[in-house]
């Protein structure tokens, strides 16, 4: 009898959860309990890191400082150029009567060192809806795209990595703009590129960047580098893979990005475009 009630209750919950978002408040409430568990499990690791950083010697700190300073110098000079390029890009796009996505806001979040489900590449970070995080936000680190926010809870959020077997990200080859989709492989250092024609112009070492299609990821962020693949004749399609740029298992800090949702029109829009009619 009790079993029957339990089964009916769980199936009802399952169906409501699959069909709608109505159970989100319940999940948010219960997550306060489970999030404290997540933080408890993370505590030894973060404590260890804190202590080891406290104990690092003056010498290493000094070395780190000089190297960071040099890096910043290089970055600054590159940014100078970037500014000019951005302005030029905006001007050119204005000529094409194109819209341009401006400024993205970021929030630094820290990974909690816990494992949820082994065969899914989902990570948990310490920022949640309290900080305005919402699902489908892109997540980056200093090297490239990490993944996207999968579910946001009050005190933590789950991030699906681009290497998850159920994740796909629209990319383009930086060299020639060839568009394709990078699908997660389930391995933390590999992405698959299954949707390429066998005469596609793609070479080992090509940089893949986000194409901005699909609307989740802003365009232009590095995703991965195409791996070596054997040269074949045109009859067979080689299995092409890429290595993600982001250091998914080594970095503890990630950036959650707020893209500006509205496109900024640079020229006065025409009265009605076909795209407007469709909406």
């Amino acid at each position: 009898m009790r079993l029957l009630i339990a089964i009916i209750a769980s199936i009802t919950l399952l169906i409501t959860d699959y069909r709608s978002e109505r159970l989100l408040p319940l999940r948010a409430t219960l997550s306060v309990l489970t999030d404290s568990l997540k933080y408890a499990v993370d505590l030894p690791v973060s404590l260890f890191e804190k202590v080891s950083s406290e104990l690092s010697s003056y010498d290493t700190l000094k070395k780190e400082n000089t190297s960071l300073r040099q890096e910043q110098l290089i970055n600054r000079t590159q940014l100078l150029k970037f500014d000019a390029l951005e302005k030029e890009n905006i001007r050119l796009r204005a000529l094409l009567e194109n819209s341009f996505k401006l400024g993205e806001q970021v929030l630094i979040a820290e990974l909690l060192s816990i494992n949820l489900v082994a065969d899914e590449h989902i990570m948990v970070v310490n920022k949640g809806t309290r900080f305005g995080v919402h699902p489908q936000q892109p997540v980056l680190d200093v090297n490239g795209v990490v993944g996207q926010v999968f579910r946001a809870l009050p005190f933590s959020s789950e991030i699906m990595l681009i290497t998850d077997p159920n994740h796909a990200i629209p990319v383009q080859v930086n060299r020639n703009g060839l568009l394709t989709i990078a699908v997660g492989s389930g391995m933390s250092n590999q992405l698959n590129l299954p949707y390429l024609p066998n005469n596609a112009d793609i070479r080992p070492g090509d940089l893949l960047i986000t194409s901005g299609l699909g609307g989740v990821f802003p365009a232009g962020y590095p995703v991965g580098i195409v791996d070596d693949f054997p040269e074949t004749n045109n009859k067979s399609i080689p299995h092409i893979t890429a290595t993600p740029k982001s250091l998914l298992d080594r970095k503890r800090e990630v950036l959650i990005v707020w893209g500006s949702n509205a496109l900024m029109p640079l020229t006065t829009p025409l009265s009605k475009t076909p795209a407007d009619n469709e909406q």
């Binding site: 339990a6 769980s10 009802t12 919950l13 399952l14 409501t16 999940r27 219960l30 997540k38």
Partner: peptide, 21 residues
Amino acid sequence: GILVDVLLGRHFGQNAFIYSL
């Protein structure tokens, strides 16, 4: 089971269903 569902980010009721059975 419900708590574990929230903990692991599963859909509500999966672990509850399995655990009760």
